[in-house]
Design a protein around this nucleic acid. Sequence first.
DNA 1: ATTATTCATCGTTGATTAACGATGGAATGT
DNA 2: ACATTCCATCGTTAATCAACGATGAATAAT
Lengths: 107, 107
Amino acid sequence: MKPADISINDKSIQRSAEIAKALGHPARIAILKILAQRTTCFCGDITEILPLAQSTVSQHLKALKTAGLITGTVEGVKTCYCLNPEGIRELQSVLSELSTELIKTCC
Amino acid sequence: MKPADISINDKSIQRSAEIAKALGHPARIAILKILAQRTTCFCGDITEILPLAQSTVSQHLKALKTAGLITGTVEGVKTCYCLNPEGIRELQSVLSELSTELIKTCC
DNA sequence: ATTATTCATCGTTGATTAACGATGGAATGT
DNA sequence: ACATTCCATCGTTAATCAACGATGAATAAT
C-alpha cells in the first residue's frame, strides 16, 4: 500500500480537527458529559453545575452546536440541549479511526 | 449508579481536553499521520510536505510534544520526531472512553 | 399589563494561537 | 577554520478564544 498523500486540506483531516477542537476545552467536555448523563434533554442549568457565567456557558454550547455535536431546540422560554446522535457517532468514528491509524505504527 | 459529579477541574477531563486541543488543528493531525506513515523515525522534512514555514511546523511539533503525543530526539544536526507510543495509547483510551460514554445516551 | 425567567447576543478585555521571517547555536562537511 | 545545514527560538502581527457583565427578546406567571 502506497503511502497516501497527506494534506492539510484533506476534508477528513479538517473535520477531525474541527471535532477535536470542539473537545479542546474542559468546559465543553464537561458539558457533553452532563448532557450524556441526563436521559432527558437538558437546558441551561449547566450554569448551575459549572462555575461559569451564563454567557460563557452559552458560548460553549454554541461552539458545540456549530461543531455538530449537540442540538438545541427552543422550548418556550427555555432551550433544550441534547447530544446530537449523528455528531457523536461521527466523533466516535472519526477519532477511533484516527487513533487506530496512529497506534498501528510506532517507532 | 449515581450520576457522577462532573467538574471542570476533573483531572481526566483536563487531560482529555489537552489531548483534544493538540489534535485541534489540521496541521497537527497531518503531522501525526505523517509520523505514523513512516516506520522509521522522522525529522523535519515535514516542512516539505506541508505548505507551512519551517518555524510554523516547528511550533506545531512543539505543541504535540508538550501534549505528550510525540517525542523528539536530537540526532546530530537533525531532530528525529516519532509518535510517542505511550501518548498515542493514552489518546486512544481517553478518546474512546469519552466517546463510548457519550454514545451510550442520547435524547 | 406588568413582572419575572431564560438565554442568546453584544461589547469588552486579556490571553492564547497561528503564521511568518530573522537570528543564531550546534553539528557536519570541506 | 569556514561554510552549510537543520531547526529551535525570538519578535511580530493578526486572528481567535475565553471570560464576564449588560442588554434585550421571548415566553410564562401574576
